[in-house]
Design a protein around this nucleic acid. Sequence first.
DNA 1: TTGAAAGCGATACCAA
DNA 2: TTGGTATCGCTTTCAA
Lengths: 336, 336
Amino acid sequence: MKPTIKDVAKHANVSIATVSRILNHTSVGYSTKTENLVRQAVEELGYRPNAVARGLINNKTQTIGVLFPDVSGMLTSELLYGLEEVAHRCGHSVIFCNTSSSGEKTLDYLQLLSEKRVEGVIFGSSLLTETYYNAITAMNIPAVLVSTKSKKHPLPYVKVDDKDAAYTATAYLIKKGHRRIAMLSGNPDDSVAGKPRIDGYREALLDSGLKGEDSLVFAADGFSYEDGRSLFTQFYETATDVTAVFAASDEMAVGALSTAYQMNVRIPDQLSIIGYDNLKISEMAIPPLTTVEQPLRDMGKKAAELLFEGMETGTPGKSIIMPHRIIERQSVKQLV
Amino acid sequence: MKPTIKDVAKHANVSIATVSRILNHTSVGYSTKTENLVRQAVEELGYRPNAVARGLINNKTQTIGVLFPDVSGMLTSELLYGLEEVAHRCGHSVIFCNTSSSGEKTLDYLQLLSEKRVEGVIFGSSLLTETYYNAITAMNIPAVLVSTKSKKHPLPYVKVDDKDAAYTATAYLIKKGHRRIAMLSGNPDDSVAGKPRIDGYREALLDSGLKGEDSLVFAADGFSYEDGRSLFTQFYETATDVTAVFAASDEMAVGALSTAYQMNVRIPDQLSIIGYDNLKISEMAIPPLTTVEQPLRDMGKKAAELLFEGMETGTPGKSIIMPHRIIERQSVKQLV
DNA sequence: TTGAAAGCGATACCAA
DNA sequence: TTGGTATCGCTTTCAA
């Protein structure tokens, strides 16, 4: 088996206490001679301190847990990228949990993370239910929400203001001369990414003296490519005189783009489309998709920073609203 | 702080040994009465066993480490999805490490994982250098490679046969009537995903009595969208009479698609394109991209299964070549 | 059926 | 400058 601190001590003819002291640069009490002796022993034995034992004694595992409903989504991966980066910088590992949007799996994981004594939890992209919240508070460690939020529960979150961002997208379309604008939306009952975006869209319309007709918002259950496709078909069969559409996600927008292509409607000449997220696919789309950016990696970073702050100070820290902005590409046409 | 087994014992008026026995369903030696007592105490105190302490005593952390050069790539996310799924099923957590293709970071991580006493390691998508290999063997735990392999080092791997898959892609193009076929390739010095794919392409050509001209393979450093774009431009300025191109990755193929679109070359009417990977974007592309599929999620699963097998048996296990197949969509035209 | 006690590998306090 | 030892929370003999 792996050598332990005892083996090193024996090998160097010193006590384990001395070895520990030297390896942790703790106290100033040891001679250069013994230090060399010990370091050499460490080298020869290929000794690596056991983080598990260390974790047991000082109650610190240097690990955080991260829960996402869908690892394979491009949105999640970007968030994860940012998270991991700062976690690593802060000397922490991340245990990564794919909840598959399953309540049971989420609870399961929370319990597991609790047993593993992670020092903090980041919960991403999905609704924080009462049960989850209870499980998290029972863990008695800091937690932060990313790309989601909770009205009822006082956990700090990092996200853009969805309503505001949707407002910006819609206002952009209006500024470009569009008057009849449809929306491809997620689930209106989704109070974090669904309803707020619809509200923002509607408010922008109203603020410009346009009317927000219900018949112009097409809602799906989720925000997927497929949702975008079917919504676009619905839209195209129903709506008339629309010159622009705001899709609540880039995946949806790309779905719309594809379907439009197949239906021979030319983007942006016959119809303008704006997306939401600024995923890599929006850049790769044909035509390149104009969209409102969420700074995903930064959000991941900020969330981790917020968590570490909470771990150090012992107090939750303040939620962060991230800025959003329009990325102009080629899917929106300026109307005369 | 969190309640310990001691608290539970005290609360239930039994010894910690009894609590341990009951919680681990170990031995048959305890009465239903005490069991109830203990369970109730656990409930009341909200006790969760400390996996760290447990890990210390039985030298098992129930976690594995996973290293990837790029979390945010869609390829990686799919692999990760599969990995995580079986890890979870096997009662293990995954510590997720983004190496950013940096040698130093990789070594760093390996060391960290070693200290954290993970029980196995999965190394993905990048070249296994001598140093990495040494670091891994020094950890003295099973390791498996996914979406990469090593000629020099005897670690089991899970991947498709790149040469074979490239052969299939090229042969498909030939079957469709194409005779002059270009290739957009990764780095020819890359012995795992670079050269083999070029070899497969060339061999298919030769086997059909066509000549594999060097001037028809355009190589980049990587496999990115941007690489695809610039390669396509190069290709288009140089090559003549080509009717089809084989791109060594879907991202490259999509880059080619975009560039082609901007140059007004119509796919597949004027030029056919086939990709490699079958990422989600290939389905979302315009036109939908014909490509050769790597069963990414399955590869992730298999890799994890292979690792767990190794952890149980103590022997490495056999490498797995995953099947590949053509996914026919609309980017390749049948020539008369 | 139950309890006492010896570790697992490290840290940190108290003496020497 | 060093060593002995209690301790972290748990599992697992060995006795009772």
